[in-house]
């Protein structure tokens, strides 16, 4: 038995300790918002946050998440940065097929939570690991900037 804390809730799961978080989320807990893309941490579709940090869940063993808080796309809207990112994504109609967007949003909200006004270089560094075959990159970039702007205007800051 392994205990994982996902979106504030603890779950006891009977899985091998080397099982990646991705499959625990999708196939054991039934949380399918986090996506499988490559299984080698090359595409970012499986990105979740571990104690606020963006990680690739397809290569992170569930044992590495012990005692830490996993946040997924299903709950990212409850964080200040995540909410602003989702709103910006809707305002600019970023997604196309949408399959990679959970990962894009998890990476973008982790970025904004630690850096309220990222430069283009910051965005490149944080987002280069998230592949989008529909090519929404231009809108992802614009939406991150829009979310950052909203953060500074509202004065609540993106740091949570």
């Amino acid at each position: 038995m392994v205990t994982v804390k996902v979106n504030g809730k603890s779950h006891q799961v009977d899985v091998p300790s080397d099982m990646p978080v991705l499959w625990v989320l999708r196939d054991v807990l039934g949380m399918t918002g986090t996506k499988f893309g490559c299984g080698m941490a090359l595409c970012g579709a499986c990105t979740v946050q571990l104690d606020g940090q963006a990680i690739r869940s397809c290569l992170t063993p569930v044992s590495a998440a012990a005692g830490k808080a996993i946040t997924t796309i299903e709950a990212i809207g409850a964080t200040p940065a995540g909410k602003k990112v989702q709103q910006a994504w809707i305002a600019l109609d970023v997604p196309q097929c949408g399959y990679c967007q959970s990962g894009q949003i998890m990476s973008a909200s982790a970025l904004l939570a630690r850096n309220a006004s990222p430069t283009d270089a910051d965005i490149d560094a944080a987002m280069a690991g998230n592949i989008c075959r529909c090519g929404t990159y231009g809108r992802v970039r614009a939406a991150i900037k829009r979310a950052a702007q909203r953060s500074s205007i509202s004065g609540t800051g993106a740091r949570s």
């Binding site: 039934g30 399918t32 809207g77 989702q86 109609d93 949408g98």
Partner: peptide
């Protein structure tokens, strides 16, 4: 007009074939 599928694609609720349970 805004895309009708965007809201579900930013919160993990959009259902792709691979998400079937």
């Amino acid at each position: 007009a805004k895309r009708l599928d965007t809201p579900s694609k930013v919160n993990g609720t959009a259902q792709f074939g691979i998400d079937v349970q």
